[in-house]
Amino acid sequence: MGDSSSCSVSVSAPAAFGSSKKCVSSCTLYHDKGVEPWLRMTSTDAWLSTGVGETIDGTDGSLQDQGDIYCVACYDNGDLEIFDVPNFISVFYVDKFVSGKSHLVDHQISDLQKPSEVDQNSQELISHGRNESSQNMKVIEVAMQRWSGQHSRPFLFGILTDGTILCYHAYLFENTDSASKIDDSVSIDNSVSSSNMSSSRLRNLRFLRVPLDIQGRDDMPNGTLSRRLSIFKNISGYQGLFLCGSRPAWFMVFRERLRVHPQLCDGPIVAFTVLHNVNCNHGLIYVTSQGVLKICQLPSTSNYDNYWPVQKVPLKGTPHQVTYFHEKNLYPVIISAPSSEARSSQ
C-alpha cells in the first residue's frame, strides 16, 4: 500500500488471505466512485457498512464522497470473492465462478433460498466447446469497471486459462422475503462481529451473464496464452476496454451495451495503453507480436455504436447498384448525377 504523505510503499498480507488455504489466481481493485456509489445501494445497511469511504471537503467548499474500494479475488478452485478495503471483510462470494453461470448470486443468499426459488438458469453452464469440469480451469485475469454515464452499472470480466472471456453486468435485486430470512438468521447469533459481517454483505447484488460475439480460445503461435484486458475511459471520446492477444478486439460501451469490434490489422497485439498529449489527443499506443510500436488515433468519421464500424461516404449522386469485387476487395457502386454539360446543351 502507498502513502502519499511520506511517499512510501508498504507490503502487508491481509488476514483474510493469510488464514485461507486457497490460492489466489487473479485479483483486481474496484473503485466505486461517485456521490452515490452504486455497490453501496446493494448493501444491507449502506451507510453503516464497513466499506463506506469518508466524505471530505472539496476545493469549492462542497462535500465530496471518495466512494468505496473493493478487492475482487479469484481462487484456483474457480470461486470468486469480493472484499471491502481496507478491512478486507468478505461482502460477496460466488461458488464456481469459472463455470460460467448465467447469474451470479452471493452464496449466503442462495443457501437461504429454497431450491424451487433459486433461478435454475444460474446453475446451468454455458457451453463454449470446452470441458467446464476440468480441474485445471481457473481465472487468470479479472477486471471490474463502471464507466461514466447515466444509470451506469458495473461490468465484471474474467479470462480463463483456455482464453474464454466471461462478461457479467451487475444489477440491483430486492427481495424482501430473502432479506427477512437473513435478518432472522443474524438475530439468532448474538455475536457482534457476525452481525456486522452480515450487514455489510452486498445481499442485493446480482450479475447477469452477457454473451460476447467473439471466439473463445486464443493461443499464440508458441502456445502461450496472451489475452489481457486494458480499460480505457476516453479514446477519441469512446470508453470501454481493449483485448490484447492473437485476436485483438475493441469492447466499446454505448448506453450500457457492449459493442465488440475485432481489430483485423497488424496481427496479434501484446501490449496496449492510452496516450494523451498535445501531439496525440486521446490516442493510444500498442505493440504487435513482431515488436512494432504504433501510435494511433481512432477515426473521428466512424460510428462504432453498431454491429460493425460505420462510416458515411457522400456519393454526390443517386446510387443504382452495388456489388463486391473480390479481386481487389472493393465494393463498386453505380451512381448517376446531373451533368452541367447536359443542361447547357438543352
Rank of each mutant, 00 (worst) to 15 (best):
F251E: 01
K21S: 07
F272A: 01
T161W: 00
Y168F: 06
G53L: 10
K328A: 12
L225Y: 09
S289P: 03
V310T: 12
Q239A: 05
G100P: 02
Y286F: 15
S127Q: 11
L298N: 04
T44G: 15
D219W: 03
I159P: 02
S195R: 15
Y30M: 03
E132R: 13
I159V: 13
V94K: 00
F325P: 04
S8F: 05
C244K: 02
K138R: 14
S195I: 11
A271I: 10
T44Y: 13
T161K: 06
H261Q: 14
L125V: 12
E327G: 07
D84H: 01
R153Q: 09
I335F: 00
N281R: 14
T318H: 07
Q123T: 06
D111A: 14
D266N: 12
E36W: 10
L80S: 02
P37F: 06
R203E: 10
P309W: 09
K21Y: 04
D266Y: 07
I89M: 12
R153V: 14
M197N: 11
R206M: 08
S20I: 00
I109L: 11
E81K: 09
R217D: 01
K328Q: 13
V118Q: 13
S43A: 15
R201L: 01
F97D: 00
R227S: 06
R209K: 02
N196M: 14
V310M: 13
E327V: 03
T176I: 15
E174M: 12
V142S: 00
N196G: 09
V52G: 04
L298M: 09
S246K: 05
I165C: 05
S62D: 13
D32W: 01
W38E: 07
D95A: 06
D79G: 05
V333S: 08
V322R: 08
L48W: 14
D95C: 02
E341Y: 08
Y238V: 04
S226F: 07
S344P: 03
T288R: 04
K22I: 06
R146K: 15
Q120M: 08
R153H: 12
Q113Y: 11
E141W: 03
W38A: 03
E54N: 14
S5M: 11
G53D: 04
S340W: 05
V260H: 03
I188S: 09
S148E: 10
L275A: 13
D60L: 11
W47C: 07
L205P: 00
P211Y: 06
M252A: 03
P332F: 06
Y324K: 04
C74I: 00
E117M: 11
R257Y: 03
D32Y: 02
A342Y: 13
N234S: 08
K96W: 11
I285C: 06
R217S: 07
T318G: 01
V192D: 01
I214E: 04
T176K: 15
H169M: 03
P14K: 00
N77P: 00
D95E: 05
R40K: 07
P314M: 03
V11Y: 08
I109P: 03
G2E: 09
V85Q: 06
V72W: 01
